[in-house]
Nucleic acid binder design. Sequence first.
DNA 1: GCACGACTATACAGATCGGTATATCGATGG
DNA 2: CCATCGATATACCGATCTGTATAGTCGTGC
Lengths: 188, 188
Amino acid sequence: MSEAIDWTPKAHAVLQAASDLFYERGIHAVGVDVIAKRAGVTKKTLYDRFGSKERLVVEYLTERDSQWRRFLDGHLVPADPSPRGQVAAVFNASAAWARERGRKGCSMINAHAEISDPAHPAYPVIMGQKRWMLALFTDLAAAAGVADPRQVGEHIMLLHEGAVVTAGMRAIEDPFTSAAVAASALLE
Amino acid sequence: MSEAIDWTPKAHAVLQAASDLFYERGIHAVGVDVIAKRAGVTKKTLYDRFGSKERLVVEYLTERDSQWRRFLDGHLVPADPSPRGQVAAVFNASAAWARERGRKGCSMINAHAEISDPAHPAYPVIMGQKRWMLALFTDLAAAAGVADPRQVGEHIMLLHEGAVVTAGMRAIEDPFTSAAVAASALLE
DNA sequence: GCACGACTATACAGATCGGTATATCGATGG
DNA sequence: CCATCGATATACCGATCTGTATAGTCGTGC
């Protein structure tokens, strides 16, 4: 395992600044000087806390992933507990997330586009989220009692991924309700 | 309009090298020195032909877009001409394209992740392809005689986008046949 | 009172970034 | 025969990149 980070107040400020900048402009497009400046911190502090830019990238993706899971959970719990209701709630949550935090699409997909080396420590984080979402949809499809849950789970996953990237590019008016309608039809 | 490019043999070599590198590693991660070296050319030649890296990016995306449209056309013409057959052929073509050229997903989506400025000259190229694909799917849905062609066209578009990004990340075994099955179900 | 941890400020390293300059070469074609 | 064109080699520009080094400030806890 990599060494734990000492989460001093300024460390949080650095990660916050890095997250905003990475997501908005892309990882390679943002230098550590800019991150430090935005955080109101010197580069020294940044390197004392995180050790490298790469580590900062991993923390950015890890934190955003766990925020997304908490956010999703907050939408699933109060929603209609039936499988179909839960699927609808996922798309609702994604729409809300996109509105509040996701004007540039999925941070995992975007990061994946910028990282060429599969040995990069950010890879497990990215793949982990995708696998987790797929498992969620597959479980819901199974609970809904469809004939082939793995197949339908994949279909809903594809609709969801498509909606997320399309929302980031504003190619379709309201991709999440559109995807939700399609997902509902596939669960019949 | 921007000035036309003088397509000397070395200009083609430069674009070829740039395309491979941009797609494989990302745009910001590749410097013009590396492109020139890979093309067996000096930076002078690169700048004589293209004038700027930005222009090279635009040409990269434009060329890849037109290659994709030709590739797709080559798969649509000999396929079953029925609307459902044509939709299936699109997913077949995408699967073949991903196998041959698309190990890192959609170049348009990836480029979009790296370009923050909407005024960037590459934006129209990116949006143009997405709009074109959506129109294609909507037309096919209309030809298939579904009740709401715009809605179903969007659904198939979302499935396709999802399959492309998922293929780039290897999160699902065979996303294109999976997406094709779902699209076929939505056309019932 | 004093050590320690978190931080600031500044400077610098070595490499690479996009882009330009100068000068030279070989082939092609009027 | 000579001008032009595509290309070469090499060197340079200022800026920025990730990362390090030195020195000093400030507040808390023992």
